[in-house]
Each structure stands twice: as structure tokens, then as C-alpha cells.
Write a protein that binds this DNA or RNA. Sequence first.
DNA 1: CGTCCTCTTGAGACTACTCAAGCGGGGTGG
DNA 2: CCACCCCGCTTGAGTAGTCTCAAGAGGACG
Lengths: 252, 252
Amino acid sequence: MPAPHRDRHHHHVLVRKLDRLVPLTEDDAGALADLSVGARQVRPRTELLHEGDTPDEVILVLEGFAARCKFQPTGHRQILAHLLPGDLCEADAGHLSRLDFSVGTLSACMVAFIPRRALVSTLERHPAMARALRLAKLQEEAISREWLVNVGCRSALERMAHLLCELQVRLQAVGFATRNGYGFPITQQDLGDTLGLSNVHVNRTLRVLRDQNLIEWRERQMRILDLPQLQAIAAFKAGYLHSTTGHESLPR
Amino acid sequence: MPAPHRDRHHHHVLVRKLDRLVPLTEDDAGALADLSVGARQVRPRTELLHEGDTPDEVILVLEGFAARCKFQPTGHRQILAHLLPGDLCEADAGHLSRLDFSVGTLSACMVAFIPRRALVSTLERHPAMARALRLAKLQEEAISREWLVNVGCRSALERMAHLLCELQVRLQAVGFATRNGYGFPITQQDLGDTLGLSNVHVNRTLRVLRDQNLIEWRERQMRILDLPQLQAIAAFKAGYLHSTTGHESLPR
DNA sequence: CGTCCTCTTGAGACTACTCAAGCGGGGTGG
DNA sequence: CCACCCCGCTTGAGTAGTCTCAAGAGGACG
């Protein structure tokens, strides 16, 4: 029993992600999949783009956790965004002279480096993809707004719960989470740099969630035991992710 | 002694701001200025766009301080961005179904409500403006990244100093700051909601800066007495604002 | 087998918060 | 014109949340 024709490339993360935002043709999907030939396995804690660079390649994460981050003179690191499978990074950074942050892997990752020119020309030939990427960018911005709220006015427990809920939704949208958990191959230090907490306090906060039987985290696998309760703690509203069931209104 | 021809519209904030990013023709400038006819005076603490709305108008601030903000169920408010004179807000929000934040004035403001269709058609006829707006958007994103760093890993004193430095640069770029200060008509509570601090702690933090003769803030006028020292406290690097002397490289 | 890295837990310190009270200026109504 | 009131600023006191320093345990890897 053959899969429907239009699903031929749907094993590809980026296709899965964008098709939820804007229905793609089989032709679109193929062109998209072609962009990520030559993907490479990258070790954890590897810098992919450096602060101050003017990269002529765009990063596409296919597997694993990567991140945008900024390093402070004090040695502190702030993680600005998690780059999950299907996330395309710095698509329009070419407009700026220099990056004001760096991009690196947290875990081992499968990453494609897409020449900007190739991306641009593909987008010109596939306007639906361009529209989907604009929507994806808006989602990203909504996430970073929520992160500012997180560090700005939530307690450690609330922040942690909120992040775990967000990842559940985002990863599920690209097929990297089950109903009650996901692979979570990052360190507690990474988590601290994400949430603006010390690694020690991250540990204590996780223990509270574990002691309340809300989560379990072993062998790089996060199990969400009580999602409703976790969402309640975080006052988590999935709406901001704009990824509910796909196919947003398409003005303009 | 007549002003040079191309300066005819340069009394307009948005023209001043965008012309620094991409040189505009007199024709561009005129079209831009036309968009803000019908600007209105708005009282402080007025909501301009509401969370959940799908606005068909874009906000242009001509005078005063406005802000994007998110309200929490707990009653807390997080300010996501300051909208200063020359800032154009939610230019591409039309792509999303619903706003996940609201926009409101902090101080009394002069604001233009620009119908999205008018903006779009002007941008189609003036591609330089469209390019300038894309660059302005990138600046905004850089600022919000820096804000995340601010609340994520800086102390109260550092956060405050950093914000004051940022405003000095941003306001000077649109002619709303002198070399050593600017009008600063917002409350300490607003400042707290911006920096993730309580209003009480904002007050104490300001007193430290005042006691060290770094700033003076009276009658809604902020005077920066020692900018280098303030920048040193904040580890402030103006580079992220990408507004140094204008006319960035223009790829693509 | 040793080393390194991450996780874990304890103890003590410090930053920032909450609650509370007083002050001062600007606007409003008598 | 004056009195009052409200809102924002200021300062104090005590508390809570988070941080730093430190030490030990458990794995992974060479």
C-alpha cells in the first residue's frame, strides 16, 4: 500500500514543519529536501557560526539541539533560542554586516549548511515556501517574546515548567516528541543558561518537578508525566506558538 | 538660505531614521511622510493594540514612549520592547491570526495609525523604503536579544545602566537625545516591568547611579553625566544596534 | 584504572522582593 | 483660590529566592 503521492518527502523535518504552515506541493517539498543534501553530523558544543561573522550559509538543524547564544565579558552565556530539528537559522542575517551572537550545538546534531544563494533562488521559485518561512519566523519571534517573559517575571519553577511545555509542543510539531515526552540531550548547565538560572538551581528545580511526579528525566529522555499540571504551573498557553493545527490565514 | 532639496522632509522622524539605513530619495521621503498624516495625540497608559486582536493598522510613534507588553495571569506585566519616535510597529503582524501581546503608550504620545494596505502599496512603489524597514526590523531583533541577556544574566545595576545607554544611542539616532541626555517620561514602575525588577528596587538602583554622579533624572529629563562610566558598568557595546553611521552593506 | 564531566546535595551569603509608611507634586472640585 | 486626593517617588525592615562555594557520587571514555 503506497503512501499518498504528496507525502513522498514528508520524512524530511523541514518539509513536515513548513507544510503545517502553508500547504506545499510535491514540487516544493522536493526542492526543499534538495537543499539539505550534504548534511553533516556535528559533535556537541561545536560553534557553527561565530559572533562577528558575516556568514554566507544558513544553518538547518535536522537532528539534535542547537542554540543561538551570546557570551558576556564576565564569562556568562545567555542562550537566546533553541534550534530544534526543522529550524532554519539566520535566513536573513545577510542583511546585517556582522552577527551579534553565535550559533552552536548543544548536543550532537545533524546539520545542513545551505548556501544563502541556493536558498534565495529556491525561495524565488517556490513562493509558498517563502511564505511558510515568514510564518516560521513569526513563530520564532513569538517564542523569544515568551522567553523574555520567562526570565523577566517567572520563578525558577515556572520558567522550567514553561520551557518543558514549549519543547513538548515544538518537538511534537516536527515529529520529535511522543504524546508524553521527547529526547532531551542537553546539560543542566545549558538549561541554566537558557533560563537565567545557575546550574545548581536548575538541578534543585528539576528535583521539585521530579518529586511531584510531573517529569522523569533519564538517559537523555524527558518524560512528561503530568502535562496538564506542568502547564498549570507555567500558566502555559500554547496559543503563542501559532502552531495549533496549521494552515493559518494568509493575508497579502 | 534654503535647505538642500533632499532635506525637505527630514524633519520627519521616520524619514530621519530610515534614511540612515538606506539613502532615500526625496520622492521616497515624501511618500513616507504622507503615511503619517492624521497622527493623533494619545494619553499615557492607553492601549493601542490589544492582545488577541488582528489589527489592520500599523502603529507609528512620532513622539513619546510606547511599548509592547504582555500581561501575566498573576497581574505582572513584562515590557517586550520600547517603541520610540520613528518606530513602526507590527508591520508584518498581519501574517499571524492574532497578536500574542498588546501595544500601549507609556507616556503621552503622538501616534499615527497607518492602514496596512496603504503601507504595503507605498512599500511596493518605494523598494528602498522596504529595504530600510527590513534593516530596522533586524535592529529591533538585535535589541530584543540584548534585552534577554539583560534580564537573563545581568545584575540590577548593570541592567539599568545598559538600558540607559541603549536609549541614549537609539534616541540620538532620531534626534530625540542630546549628547548627554534625553526626555524620559516614563514611570519607575514601567522601568521595572522593562527590566524584570520591582519598582522599589528600580528606585534603589537609580539612587546608586545618582549617588555616583552618573545620571540625574528630574522633570522627566534624563541627564547622562558620565556615559563612559555608565557603559563600563553595563559592558555596553553599541555594535549590536547596527546604527553606527548608517548605510550598511546591502546584499541581495 | 584513572580522569574528566555532569549531576547532586549541603551550607552560607547576597540580591532582590514584599509589605509598609511617609512625602511631594499636580490635578480636581468645592 | 484653597483643600484634598491620588499617584508616583522614597526609604526602612524583614523575608524569600537564588547564587556561590564546596565536596562527593556516578558514568563515560581513553
